Computed example of a mutant assay.
Amino acid sequence: MIPIKRGKDIDGMRLSGRLVAEVVESLRSILAPGIRTGEIDRYAAELIAARGGKSPFLGYRGFPGTICISVNEEVVHGIGGERMLQYGDLVKLDVGLIKDGWVGDTAATFPIGMGDAGDLKLIEVTQEALWAGIAQAREGNRIGDISAAIEACAQAHGMAVVREFVGHGVGRKLHEEPQVPNYGRPGAGPKLKAGMTLAIEPMVNAGGAAVRLLADGWTVVTADGRRSAHFEHTVLITKGEPEVLTKHGMAGGSTEKGAAKARQGAASGE
């Protein structure tokens, strides 16, 4: 069964979506050369707590982080730690927040510094793929319409979508039915109905689609060592246009000032 949200359920999803988007925007401001991924994770924990929320990732099947922080060839599920970000890195932040029992889930990719042409193209294509998928998230369409649109966008630019990890329903639980692959056939899969809430999240590789799991049991990397980008929004299916519940600035640069703020352990609701 695919959960259908109505009334106050949707209000709850809108709130959690707005709050998690605020967290991503605040995290964006601290990304700079010299900050450690563990510092980013700790700051995320402060930001989530300041909003009266909690992380749906921390402890999920044993995951040790508040958020997922994946760098360069790391695709998803990276764990914050001692790694220090360098100029030219490509950082993916996958952030979730539970508020009043409802989950907001979103992800974005950021260059550290200006970003080279290849990284910026990868970011652009992955965002384009996300919005192509969202455009198909309409009542009466099917999951396969979302999936096919994402895959077609990536392939048109000579890039590949990751097949082992997919989007999903989201609501009272982090992962609900249905699965939302980033590849597939138009017209296939469950029919979309108003009140469904989906986490649509293309993971696009600059090289091949193949990935492998590192020894930590969590971090997924590209098999060929090429870089990967990841974007995600929580989307509400309506009677009309899809409603993006986690809208934020998405890709962006970094600030040294923000990094200094993070090191001081500052937390704010801005």
Rank of each mutant, 00 (worst) to 15 (best):
K8H: 13
D9L: 09
G12Y: 07
G12W: 10
G12N: 08
L15K: 14
L15A: 11
L15V: 10
S16Q: 09
V23H: 08
E25A: 12
L27E: 03
R28I: 04
S29L: 13
L31M: 05
A32P: 03
G34M: 06
E46R: 15
I48Q: 03
R51L: 03
S55D: 09
G59P: 05
G59A: 04
G65N: 04
V71H: 06
E73W: 12
E74Q: 13
V76H: 10
V76N: 10
G80Q: 05
G81R: 01
G88C: 02
G88I: 05
G88K: 00
D89N: 05
L90I: 01
K92G: 11
K92E: 06
D94S: 15
D94T: 13
G96I: 03
A117H: 13
A117Q: 12
L122F: 07
Q127A: 10
W131F: 13
I134K: 06
A137Y: 00
R142Y: 01
R142F: 05
D145L: 05
A149F: 07
I150H: 00
I150W: 07
C153R: 15
G158T: 01
A160N: 02
V161T: 12
R163V: 02
E164S: 14
F165C: 10
V170H: 04
R172E: 14
E177G: 11
P178L: 08
N182T: 08
P186Y: 13
G187R: 04
G189A: 07
P190V: 10
T197V: 15
L198E: 11
E201S: 15
A210Q: 15
L213D: 06
L213M: 13
T219R: 04
R226D: 08
R226A: 12
H230K: 06
T234W: 02
V235Y: 00
E241I: 07
P242I: 06
P242T: 03
L245C: 00
T246Q: 02
K247L: 14
K247C: 09
H248G: 09
M250G: 11
A251H: 15
A251T: 11
A262W: 02
A267N: 10
A267G: 15
G269D: 12
